[in-house]
Nucleic acid binder design. Structure first.
Lengths: 222, 222
DNA sequence: ACAATAATTAATATCGATATTTTAAGGAAG
DNA sequence: CTTCCTTAAAATATCGATATTAATTATTGT
């Protein structure tokens, strides 16, 4: 069969999953777009089975919808959906952050300082690198909450939100906002174990971004 | 190929998904148990592809775990996991119920009254029927919250919790508790649009069940 | 011309077979 | 007797092909 290819250690399904996820989050696959297996087989250079399985995984991440016997499509977007994501993120991350701080120890404090440092030193214009470190930073803040399911939900909602950021167009600068400063202040409050302050800063951070995105025109599905 | 079989309207994947879900929730497939495709092919009388896809869907429901290249297994259980589910359910259902009541209208009120009636009139000893109506009742209370993602999380957590009820053994009666009475009181508070009272009754309902289950011995995985 | 229906095309869902990888077993050496 | 390596068995992951189902186009009758 196929000579080398995905030989290595990682399965074709995982490869397809990561690639498709990336393509949907960045908007390369548009909201509502029909996801044809044949089509994706070529683009990802793999068989139908791994793609089908990857799409099934993405269904539960709410990035893909399965239509009865009519295959898959990228999840559609809407103002309503965006507002819901923002609202839920605030509620769940508030919960996670407070628990995280409640269990704070030196090791965790060092983790978040490091995650912040790594994010702060790269150029935010290098989107893929920055986005990755940005998520790592935010998740590190929550990671100490000892609630894997909650973390999973936060991670899912984070990705759904990032998708809207990409769809709104990444060339936007954030006006008069000092986003790095906001990050630093959230970090400082968390490191100081001040849950109320850290949470209020985090939620404000999200809501400002939410307000900003809300002003941009919605990207229509299909 | 196979003559009749899954002819009808519903796909083999959906059939396998429902069946496997049921088998895991009821404990027919034990926590931590290896889920061998060959094995399941026989039991469900279908091919490997639908089973594989169904298992992928269950992964995101957190009822199944995927191990690198070593297939699937039923999600393990633990006290910690149970506590987390209970905690999250209380937090998320509190949120959903309050929003549901905030949007209350006559149609919703009628829905929950009806759902309660249908649950109340069947014999709780008829487990499959009662469980179905019980979930329908609880979800109907939340359904008015206009937040599909939140509802989905609540539904997931509900199922994860039901699994623990099955694993703890369904023959248990709930001691001195008047569970039907608790349901009625939750319904009444919600119908009266008293969010604080309804929520406090709902959470107490869950926490009592939680305490009860916590006393039973944990079912070991594999 | 237009609706309804029939033929055609395209795409999905599923099967059966195969290559890869993991697990288990069996020896040989230390 | 234990450890490591080799070999055999089992199971997974994936492919290629096919039957089903949905979408599209052509056709016919009014």
């Amino acid at each position: 069969m196929d000579t080398v290819a995905q030989s290595s250690i990682i399965s074709a399904t995982q490869t397809a999953y990561s690639a498709l996820r990336q393509m949907i989050v960045t908007g390369e696959l548009r909201p509502g777009e029909k996801l044809k297996i044949e089509n994706l087989k070529e683009r990802l250079e793999t068989g139908a089975s791994p793609i089908r399985e990857a799409l099934s995984l993405l269904v539960s991440d709410q990035l893909v919808e399965r239509l009865d016997q009519r295959g898959f499509r990228a999840a559609p977007v809407s103002h309503q959906n965006f507002s819901e994501i923002l609202m839920l993120r605030c509620a769940l991350e508030d919960m996670a952050l407070r628990q995280s701080i409640a269990h704070a120890d030196d090791a965790w404090e060092e983790t978040i300082v490091l995650a912040h440092h790594r994010m702060a030193r790269v150029d935010p214009a290098d989107i893929p690198v920055f986005e990755d470190l940005h998520k790592t930073f935010h998740m590190a803040m929550l990671a100490n909450c000892a609630s894997p399911i909650l973390l999973r939900y936060c991670s899912q909602l984070y990705d759904l939100n990032v998708r809207y950021r990409y769809l709104a167009g990444r060339s936007q600068n954030y006006g008069s906002r000092d986003v790095p400063g906001e990050h630093r202040e959230i970090l400082e409050a968390a490191a100081a174990r001040n849950a109320d302050l850290a949470s209020s800063r985090l939620l404000s951070h999200y809501q400002q971004t939410g307000e900003f995105l809300r002003q941009l025109s919605e990207v229509p599905g299909s």
